[in-house]
Nucleic acid binder design. Structure first.
Ligand code: MN
Ligand code: MN
Ligand code: ZN
Ligand code: ZN
Lengths: 140, 140
DNA sequence: CCAATAGATGAGAAGCTTTTGCATTCAATC
DNA sequence: GATTGAATGCAAAAGCTTCTCATCTATTGG
């Protein structure tokens, strides 16, 4: 179960950590903010402080269990690290997020970095737009 | 001069607006934060509040005079809108920023959006890395 | 030019997300 | 079960940005 992942990360197995990891694994939406996690915990009657949520997510990130992204709406979102790099397209109306991988884009970025004299450490590509989902306009 | 650009934007021609626009046009670095602008104004003995800097930059953005970007270090950066879209590559050590345009990447993004059912409104692509500039390690 | 007025400004307070300090609690180890 | 360094919750603080409001000013048109 989750215990071992937490232990492997060099962290003590505590209720907050287990709950948060479970939550990330079972959540409907892959991409959640610290506040989202906090509210989900409250809804599940877990008495865990927001500071702890931030601390745990940061530790999970350092341990490679989760990834953190900055979408344009002010706060960061976290997702389980599934090992394979991908980028995101976000609906500006309903907030839906889809993931994609495009090898051509990846190659081009490498080429650009080479030409401009940079050694890439990472990159962030987020496309913003309006999705065509039926329920898009009905959601907040 | 700048007066007309400001007037065309539907804004009154005031000292803060003229100074800020001049500053953006003459600055060494194209990409500056609100705080950068504020400090430059102080250095030029202009008594302009930080709130005004934010307000003016936001108004300039709405008027299409400047563009705003979010790099990963917390604060936003502004640059004069030169009309042609471009993306950025940022040095994580010295902060240098270079711009690039890659038509292939642009096309691929459009293709991805089509496939996933999104109508693109904008996108943000930032590559982070270490630049090979001689002075890179010597700068803050 | 001056008066009237809608708009702009500066200073500080407030807002929001994220981090930190600290006393208390707890998991790991023996 | 006792020991101890790590983890937690809470409240305070930080960092960036926006807002409030009393004061000031650019614009206009007389
Ligand atoms: Mn993702
Ligand atoms: Mn630029
Ligand atoms: Zn949508
Ligand atoms: Zn550099």
């Amino acid at each position: 179960m989750e215990d071992q992942e937490i232990r492997n990360a060099g962290l003590k197995v505590t209720a907050p950590r287990v709950k948060i990891l479970e939550l990330l694994e079972n959540s409907q939406q892959r991409h959640v903010s610290a506040e989202d996690v906090y509210r989900m915990l409250l809804a599940a009657d877990q008495d865990i402080g927001l500071a702890t949520v931030y601390r745990v997510l940061t530790q999970f990130e350092e341990a490679g269990l989760v990834e953190k992204h900055h979408f344009e709406d002010g706060h960061s979102v976290f997702e389980l690290d599934k090992g394979k790099h991908h980028d995101h397209i976000v609906c500006v109306t309903c907030g839906r997020v889809k993931e994609f991988v495009d090898e051509t884009i990846e190659e081009r970025q490498q080429k650009i970095a080479d030409e401009l004299g940079f050694q890439i450490s990472e990159h962030d590509l987020v496309i913003y737009g309006k999705c065509l989902d039926d329920e898009c306009d009905r959601k907040g």
